[in-house]
């Protein structure tokens, strides 16, 4: 290869590596700080690599007074699992109907659904809050954290695109075999859109895992709060003990990071797809 091409290639990789290092650095900083001693975490100039690894920091952060990490984790897992499952069910049904069934009002209804994307959450936060707390009486409950998220217009939209790409011949063949919509959906269409289902499930799970403002507003007891909200009192409790704070942040980020690294293809492709379609 001519040296100029080599140099250009090296420059490209240099840019990419520098960018990647900057992007990943906060994660590195979080994890390494979580293993430093109190003094080392506070030292200035900063110490880039712990001289002694204090693995007990994690235990200390986990058992920190007034925190209920295990409980919060269980809450988050439960809430995320139920709302993800629920969203999948409602989204698959609705998306299938919008894509492959003919009924009066279909387009109008779909248009209304799409319009709701443009209603900003700041505007609906208070009415939703009043509705949930005052009229449904769900203040400080699990259902307040789950039910509003059992349907996702975004997921319906995404799945509809996939159902539309299922060949019509398959449906015709199924009809000749006497299969109705339910059977066709279950045994033909769903297996075909499996990757999209995984994407939708992952994105919903992630959104639920990371949701913060809404659970902060509708809950008051530590026993039913998710971990994002639990992180707030922990951070004010731990104060300037940054090694413990970073351990806490790691608790919250690590599970999503692991899931992401395992299933990154679905995450990235899901986002990419919405990007093109939009």
């Amino acid at each position: 290869m001519p040296p100029r091409v080599l140099a250009a290639g090296a420059l490209k990789h240099l840019i990419l590596v520098a960018g990647a290092v900057l992007t990943a650095f906060p994660f590195y900083w979080m994890v390494t700080t979580s293993f430093k001693s109190f003094a080392e975490a506070q030292s200035y100039p900063p110490v880039l690599w712990p001289t002694v690894w204090h693995f007990e920091n994690w235990q200390q952060a986990w058992e920190f007074p007034t925190t209920l990490w295990a409980r919060s984790f269980a809450n988050t897992l439960g809430i995320a699992a139920v709302s993800t499952l629920g969203t999948l069910v409602t989204a698959v049904l609705a998306a299938y109907a919008f894509a492959r069934m003919r009924f009066r009002g279909r387009n109008v209804l779909f248009a209304i659904f799409l319009l709701t994307i443009f209603i900003p959450s700041e505007a609906t936060l208070i009415p939703n809050f009043v509705l949930i707390t005052k009229y449904l009486g769900w203040y400080n409950t699990y259902q307040a954290q789950i039910v509003p998220f059992l349907a996702s217009v975004f997921s319906i939209f995404l799945l509809r695109q996939f159902f539309m790409s299922v060949p019509q011949e398959l449906q015709d063949a199924a009809r000749i075999d006497g299969a109705g919509h339910v059977r066709f959906l279950w045994s033909v269409a769903l297996p075909l859109v499996r990757p999209a289902l995984i994407t939708v499930a992952l994105l919903n799970f992630l959104a639920s895992w990371n949701s913060f403002l809404w659970p902060l507003l509708v809950t008051s007891s530590p026993e039913i709060r998710p971990i994002q909200v639990a992180l707030v009192p922990f951070s004010s409790e731990a104060g300037t003990q940054y090694h413990l704070l970073m351990a806490g942040a790691t608790f919250v980020i690590l599970p999503t990071l692991v899931v992401y690294l395992i299933a990154q293809r679905y995450f990235i492709e899901g986002v990419a797809r919405t990007g093109i379609r939009g």
Binding site: T23, W29, Q42, Y44, L231, L245, V252, L257, I268
Partner: peptide, 30 residues
Amino acid sequence: YRVVYFMPYITSVVAAALVFEWMFDANFGL
């Protein structure tokens, strides 16, 4: 590279903000 660049997007804003707060600290910040 794609995996690394996309990583921040999936992390919780609250937890990541804690890390940045620490990096922005006036006295001991990186």
